[in-house]
Amino acid sequence: MSILFTGATGFLGSRLLYALLVEEGCEVTALGRGTPATLRARLVASLTGLAGGPLPQSALDRLHCLPGDVSRPRLALPPAHYSRLAGRTTEIWHSAADISLSAPLESLRGTNTAGTAHILELAEYAGQGCRVTHVSTAFVAGRRRDGCMAETELDDSAGFETAYEQSKFEAERLVRVWAQRWDRPVTVLRPSVLVTGSRPEEGAPQHPFGELGRRTEKSSGVFGGVTGRVRLPLLPEGTINAVQVEYAVQAMLCLAARAPDTPGVSTFHVVHPVDTPVRLLLEAIENRHPGLRLEQVARVTDPDPAETLIAAQLPDFLCRYGMQRRRYERSGLLSLVPELTDPPPLDASYVRAALGYGPAVRGATRTGATA
């Protein structure tokens, strides 16, 4: 098996790459920007941080680095290199994405939508035996606030909270059209907000909760200078579906290995069965800044200066996804990987660790589930 992997330098991608190389023993070609030497140095540093020490030489020998760009035709590779890559690739993991929640749609489409189209072209060239796993997002559900999102559902009638969601929706739609046109199987994985209770290495990709914690620490002058009640434009009963990345990686590896080989798209939500109350995040910030009381209010029509300042420090994921109450179907994952234990709910100690306020907490343990 020879895997082409995109997005290996990302928060999720680096962990998937580590699992494929070290735990699964796969041969992996990582496509990314930079020279082969600089790309390899970045990846080895990231993987070493995840391992907590040097990687086995056998894993390093299975890692191949290829400069390229998913946003450009033929991945910006010379024709001969592109042909050789297609000829040796038996499986593709497409995890590369621009995850900005504030970037304009046209910019996001370059990586998220056109990039997916370019990867599918390579899969077509690689031949019928090349299996594709596409990492999407649970938030292709867009602005739909209530109800249960089915795994088979791909509907844009409610619109989107962000251009990121729309670009990923369009990418999934391309995947479905391609699979039907070429009579090929594709596995689509839809994670929700990915978090970890472990502190990332300096310079390593950050996760959304960690980014929130970083903002509040950088803005300690703003938060620390305010006491009393501060209203924030957040649904009072708001929750966020956040899932431990350690659990998500286990689930994704198993799903990719066990998904049907029959033509068509098999879609799986990789989400937490229990939503995390936004209140837990706010309480962690309050504990960090004694005297501050953050109150969730559906709409703040007359914010005072302190409320305006603090609301500006909240990342987009909290303001947008904390207004949702929808659920996600998980029957596909549960039927294919019944032995994988559900992750524990995110409690106060985990949330503090994820924000970077407390000691590391393990979010999921291996349960013997293997691909």
Rank of each mutant, 00 (worst) to 15 (best):
Q128T: 03
A126I: 01
P104F: 02
R74V: 00
Y125H: 14
T89N: 10
S136K: 09
R88H: 12
G142R: 06
T137F: 10
S83Q: 14
V132C: 11
T89M: 04
A117R: 13
V70G: 02
P73Q: 09
I99V: 15
E124K: 12
Y82C: 03
A80C: 06
D69R: 09
L75F: 12
R131K: 07
G110M: 09
G87M: 07
L120F: 13
S83L: 12
T116H: 13
H134W: 11
S95Y: 00
G110R: 15
T90E: 15
G68Q: 01
A114W: 13
N112H: 13
G87C: 04
E106F: 08
R84I: 00
G87I: 06
S100N: 12
A80S: 15
L122P: 01
I92M: 10
G115S: 11
A123N: 03
R88I: 06
L77T: 03
R88P: 01
C130L: 05
R88K: 14
I99L: 08
S95I: 10
E106V: 05
R143W: 01
A80R: 15
I92D: 04
W93P: 01
P104C: 07
E106S: 15
L101E: 04
F139E: 08
V132R: 09
L75G: 05
E106K: 11
S95L: 12
G127W: 12
A97P: 06
H118R: 11
T137K: 05
L75V: 07
T116Y: 14
T116D: 12
L105P: 03
T133Y: 01
D98R: 13
P79M: 03
G127S: 06
G68F: 06
L105Q: 11
V135Q: 08
I119W: 08
T90G: 15
A86N: 02
Q128C: 00
